[in-house]
Design a protein around this nucleic acid. Structure first.
Lengths: 112, 112
DNA sequence: TGCTTATACCTAATAAAATTAGGCATAAGC
DNA sequence: GCTTATGCCTAATTTTATTAGGTATAAGCA
C-alpha cells in the first residue's frame, strides 16, 4: 500500500472541509489529520499546504489567529463568513466533477 | 446545467480510457465523444488535448497513424503495447485517488 | 455565390498549482 | 548529545491547463 497520486485541485476543498468540520486547525495538524484519516494514502505536504492556506487568506475565505502553545507559536486557520458559504460550493463542485470523471473512467466509452 | 470544473490530472487517464475502449481515435473525435458522453459537463479543449497527446507519444504510450479522409488529414492515436499496460495502472490509480478524496470530502473529518 | 458552421490539426504565452529541496527554531524521546 | 517530532515557512522548478489565437477543407444554407 503505497501513497496514492495526489489529485491536483483537491487541496483547497480538502482544507475547506477540514475547517468546516473542526472550526479551526493549524497547518501541521491538517497534514497529520489527513495522513491519519486516509492511512497515509493521501499525504498533504507542507510545501503545498502553506501556499494554499495563504491563498485562501488572500481571498478572504480563511482567517488566522496566532497563539503561543508551549514554547512554540501556532497559527490557527478558520473559515470566514464568506469562506463558510464558498466551502459548500467548492466541495460540492469538486465532488460532482469527480463523479463525472469516475463515470468516464468506469463505463465503456464506445463511440461510433 | 453549466460546465463542471475540470479536474487537473484527469486528462491523461481519460485519453487512455478512450483509446483502451475504442482502439483508435483522432483528437477532434475525443473532444466530441467526451462532450457527448457527459452531456457537456466535461469539456476537453483542444488546447489541452493536443499537448497531452503529444506527451503520450513522447512517452511511448501512444502512437499515431495518419490517414486522408475526404479532403482532410486525420491523425489517429492508439495505445502502444506499453501504453496498454500503463493505462490500466494509470486509470486505477486515478480512480483510487478519487475515492479517497471523495471519502475525505464526504465524511466528518473530526480530529482531536 | 457568399457567409457561417463544422471538421481537423496545431502553437505560443500565460497562469495556476503542485513538487523538489530546502531553511529555521523549539521540544521531546532515548 | 543525537534524533525525531512539532511547527512555521520560502524559492526555484516543473507540470498541466487556460487563454487566445492560427491554418485549412468541407458542408449547410440563404
Amino acid at each position: 500500500m503505497d501513497q496514492l497520486r495526489f489529485i491536483k485541485g483537491s487541496l483547497t476543498p480538502i482544507i475547506l472541509k477540514l475547517l468546516e468540520d473542526n472550526g479551526r486547525m493549524y497547518g501541521y495538524e491538517m497534514t497529520k489529520a489527513v495522513r491519519q484519516m486516509t492511512g497515509d494514502k493521501i499525504v498533504i505536504t507542507e510545501a503545498a499546504l502553506y501556499p494554499a492556506l495563504h491563498r485562501l487568506v488572500e481571498e478572504d475565505l480563511v482567517e488566522t489567529t496566532t497563539e503561543q502553545v508551549g514554547g512554540r507559536m501556532r497559527k490557527y486557520y478558520s473559515l470566514t463568513r464568506k469562506g463558510k458559504k464558498e466551502s459548500v460550493i467548492e466541495i460540492n463542485s469538486m465532488l460532482e466533477a469527480m463523479s463525472s470523471i469516475q463515470l468516464l473512467l468506469t463505463k465503456k466509452l464506445s463511440h461510433g
